[in-house]
Structures are given as C-alpha cells and as structure tokens.
Nucleic acid binder design. Sequence first.
DNA 1: CAATAGTTGTTATTTTATTAACAATTCTTC
DNA 2: GAAGAATTGTTAATAAAATAACAACTATTG
Lengths: 217, 217
Amino acid sequence: MKVRGNNNHKSMGGQVPEPTLRRLPGYLSYFKSLKINGIEHVSSSQIASTFNMDATLVTKDLSHTGIKGRTKIGYNVDKLIETIIVFLDFNTHENAFLFGVGNLGKALINYDGLKHYGLKIVAGFDVDPRVINTSVKDVKVYGVDDFRDLSRKIPARIGIITTPDGKAQETADYMVAWGIKAIWNFTPQSIKVPDNIVVENTSIYSDLAVILNKLNK
Amino acid sequence: MKVRGNNNHKSMGGQVPEPTLRRLPGYLSYFKSLKINGIEHVSSSQIASTFNMDATLVTKDLSHTGIKGRTKIGYNVDKLIETIIVFLDFNTHENAFLFGVGNLGKALINYDGLKHYGLKIVAGFDVDPRVINTSVKDVKVYGVDDFRDLSRKIPARIGIITTPDGKAQETADYMVAWGIKAIWNFTPQSIKVPDNIVVENTSIYSDLAVILNKLNK
DNA sequence: CAATAGTTGTTATTTTATTAACAATTCTTC
DNA sequence: GAAGAATTGTTAATAAAATAACAACTATTG
C-alpha cells in the first residue's frame, strides 16, 4: 500500500521534475485567462489541446501540485490558480538585486510581471557613473561599493546578472561574497560558483538556436 | 555496418536532440572567451568541468556538429567556433519583425548580440500612436497596417511577440496571415498556430519557477 | 623506443520523461 | 434509476537523454 500523505508542502521527499516546473507557469497564465472569461472548470484534455501535448502529462503535472480534479467535471479554475501560485512560491516576495542596468536590465526592472510572480527587484547596481544614482521606475541604481550598507537595509537572496558578456564571472563572484544564494544569469557566459549556490542560466541564444534549426530543417 | 556519411549538412537524416542544440550556444560563448585568452585547444573534460556536466555528453554534443577532436590534444578552438556558428546558422542573417515595442521589445532591438547570432530585427510594429513612426536604434516602428508594403520590401520569416499578455494570440494570427514561418513568443500565453509554423516560447517565468523551487528546497 | 597517461569517440546501461492502457468515478440523458 | 459518456488518476510501456564503460589512438616521458 502506497502512502499518499499530504502534499501541501514540497519540502517532502517527492522531487518535482524540472520539465513539470517549467510547464506550470504556462498553465497558470492559461488558467488566468480562463478565469477572466468566466470559465470555472477545465479538463486535462482541454489544457492538453491548448498546449499541444498529451493529456496524461497534464494530469501528472497537476498532480504534483496536490490539486484534485473531479471526474466528468475537470479542475476548478480558481483552485488551480491558487494552488499553482502557492506551489511555485509566486505568492512570496523574494527580493533580488540586479547587476548591470543596461537595456535588458532596465527592461526587467520595468517588467511589471515579475512582481506578480514572486520576485521583487529592490536595487540595481552598475559601474557606469551615468546610471549610478538614477532610478529606473522606483528602483534606485547604486555603485558596487554601496552594497554593504544596502544589504543590511534590504536583504536579498537572488542576484540577477544582466551585465555585458565578459563581466558575468566577476559579478557572480561579488554576489556570492555578498551572500546571494541564487544567481539568475542572463549572459551566455557560464559561471562557476560554490555547489550550494543555485544558478539558472537564461540564454535567449539557446532559444534562437532551436528556432533557426527548426526553420531550416 | 553503419554509414557515417558526411555530416556537413544537418539537412541529412540525423536529428539533433534539442538539449544539445540548447547547450551549443553556451559552449560557443566559452570557446570565444578561450580564443580571446589565446588558448588554441580545449578538451571535453575541461569543457565539462566549466559547465558542471559529464564529459561524455560534451563529446556527444560536439560530434553532432561534425567536428573532430584529436586524441591527447583536444579540440581546436578556432575550428570549434567556426563549426558551431555554421552549424547553428548563426552566420546567416535571418530577418525578423518584432511586434510590441514596449520595454522588452526595445531591449531586444537594442540587444546587439542578436545580430551576431543570425538574427536581424528589421522592423517593429505597435498599436500605440506614440511609438509608431519613432525609431529604436536604427529600427523603425510601424503601425500594423503598414505591413503589406513593408513585407514586399523586406521579407522576414521570423516574428517576435513582445506584446502585453493577452495580445499574443491575436498577434500570432496576424503574423501567420502575413506569411511568418516562425514565431518567437516572449509572453507567457500559449498560442495556437498551424502545424507548419515553428513556435518557440521563451518564458522567464519558467526559469523563475525553477529558481524559487531550488532556493526553497 | 617502450610505457604511460590523457584523450576521443563509440557502444551499453541506467535514468528520466513521455505516452499508452486501463480501472474507477460520476454526471447526464433517456 | 439504469446506461452511457467523459473524465481523473494510476500503472505499464515506450522513448529519449544522460551516464558509464571501454576500446583505440597518440603525445610525452623515461
């Protein structure tokens, strides 16, 4: 007999597959649009057809979050939204520092979305005197040296790297020394950090490679 | 006996696994930095340690591009760079239209990198009269209606969606009607298009979900 | 010039992710 | 209220990707 246990907390053993984690935000966006349109229930086959995937996979993905559907009815949209938001920690406000306030950095700061997805960029850092002491939206930009004081006022566990290529490793080293626990690296450069630091590389070049490959096939 | 054949063209049967495609741009960036530092050869184990992965996987990834290494020496850095660029079609200039000239759209247009990775954004489109007829860098922004004339002057196969959420499907429909063959969707919304159209979704929320999950584990 | 160690590249194994099959449930219709 | 159809959710099978094992090769060293 298998123990199901309560699955309100993902701290329990059961690892969630990364592909599942990656799909959940897409589902969430879809469920929100359903809610706006006044739709109260949705079935796995509907979801699957929207995302061009297998219905069983949807079912499995959703089961990881602990949500229960009803036979012949499907899943409750409100419940889906609430459950996924909590499951992905999108209801928390995790502070983040952003290093490299160029075009991409500014775009991320201006990107309202992040706020509703658990991330709050609380300060920007740069080496360019022309951007230091300016503000992007309500986010102030500091020089690197101001970090010590700032980190005492506003603790942050996440660091975002949007510097030009070539400065990524240097920036990552700073961040780790500062006490940053997770690094979100938007440069194509690979960075080396201690094992206990979480690193996520977001490379639009990877996406581009996939597009060009499919297009020219 | 297995026929190896020449593998100068990926048009031949052998599908390249998507994970491999996604890793290649990262390798490329690393190889470029090696070249700058005057390093002429690199081994799969060095590469693997840089990216925190298994050396065999590196070897396999590189073998897909047709490059040959030398026992006890490794791979020639110049050759690696050249081969991967050609393999990923980063040496071509694929034209792209960008729809939704907001913060993210502007950042992408300003992002010099893309030009060196095979993609050239040739025009922006928007519905906001305040941005129509302006320029971002050397890229002009048009209203949607101007498309017909423009597409005759500058053909493009790739369409980039950086509109606000909720406009993604509508925009995708336009693009397909216009003759766009591949859509790069930066909104979290899923879009439905005919089977012959390539769609790549770039969702930073997926990356965020992975980061938060690892951080809170 | 033989032995050694570092290295590629292939084949086999294991792990992970996806798809298929099916049993259980329950709303709806006749 | 019985029959049928739609749906969940689990278990089994398949497919894909990553890792391990190993054979072949070649610079370097003694």
